[in-house]
């Protein structure tokens, strides 16, 4: 490990790192879909490898010393791997998303004032019991003992004559279970939102696709198993609005249809 290395090795590495760093900085402003972060970090790892291998000169180290060099990095890899194995799987569940239907007339929670939200303590959520599920306006009828399942993309609550619409919405694995919610114009919308993720989510409705002009911004809650009830007035003008989670606006969004 004592031999004198030709200067060009060091200069080549320097040029490669400088060029790659500039490219990396430029790529941060170009949309590459899901690859931005991956490309950014791959370039960083490659640059670090060049420094360790050629500049510090680990390639010329005796085998035992290479092992010693590797230990720190391997250990850090283990730390990150095991921690992420925990964090990324906390939301996973062996059961499907619970669907608790609000009993007609008797809500287990106080209905909040218009434009506000009530936090429902987890304990207050009634356990799932196989009782006859009341037919909510527009909801597919539930059989005894079978949770109501609203397939993604299907109309959750089509226009009803009543002025109040109740919607069940849940979030798990950083996605909503619905990508389309339909309500009548000017109706009072009650959204019972369940968050099954160990991170914060909320529910908001906007006039524009960019999420600049809010109709309703709901308070964020953190799961798993957290529930909140939002209540707000739907716009009186028919149209397709945006609903989303403000914390994950790219992954968690859908059409809020008023007609």
């Amino acid at each position: 490990m004592n031999e004198v290395v030709p200067k060009r090795v060091y200069f080549t590495v320097w040029i490669v790192i400088v060029v790659l760093s500039v490219v990396n900085a430029a790529l941060a402003f170009v949309r590459l879909g899901p690859f931005n972060s991956a490309v950014t970090m791959l370039i960083a790892v490659f640059n670090a490898f060049l420094i360790v291998w050629y500049v510090i000169g680990v390639r010329r180290y005796p085998p035992l010393m290479k092992v010693i060099v590797a230990i720190g990095f391997v250990w850090m890899g283990l730390m990150i791997h095991l921690t992420m194995a925990d964090y990324l799987t906390r939301a996973w569940s062996t059961t499907t998303t619970r669907s608790v239907t609000i009993p007609a007339g008797k809500a287990p929670f106080e209905e909040p004032a218009l434009g506000s939200a009530t936090r429902v303590p987890t304990a207050a959520v009634p356990p799932y019991e196989p009782t006859a599920l009341p037919q909510l306006p527009g909801m597919p009828g539930g059989q005894i003992g079978v949770p109501t399942i609203v397939p993604t993309g299907q109309i959750a609550a089509p226009p009803a004559r009543g002025r109040t619409v109740r919607i069940e919405l849940s979030a798990s694995n950083a996605s909503f279970d619905k990508d389309r919610i339909v309500v009548p114009t000017g109706s009072t919308v009650i959204v019972r939102f369940t968050n099954d993720d160990p991170v914060f989510h909320n529910f908001s409705v906007y006039r524009d696709a960019a999420g600049q002009r809010a109709i309703f911004v709901g308070q964020a809650i953190r799961g798993p198993g957290a529930m909140i009830v939002y209540r707000f007035r739907a716009p009186s003008k028919p149209g397709v609005y945006l609903f989303r989670c403000d914390i994950h606006p790219v992954a968690m969004r859908g059409s809020f249809v008023v007609k």
């Binding site: 990396n24 941060a28 931005n36 972060s37 950014t40 960083a44 670090a48 360790v52 510090i56």
Partner: peptide, 24 residues
């Protein structure tokens, strides 16, 4: 000393992309 100095460089090699470039 040089190896320590290179290590400080390596840390920045990661800090720069992580803190400045993860914009999507």
């Amino acid at each position: 000393s040089a190896n320590y100095w290179h290590f400080v460089d390596i840390v920045w090699t990661f800090l720069f992309p992580v803190l400045y470039l993860l914009r999507w």
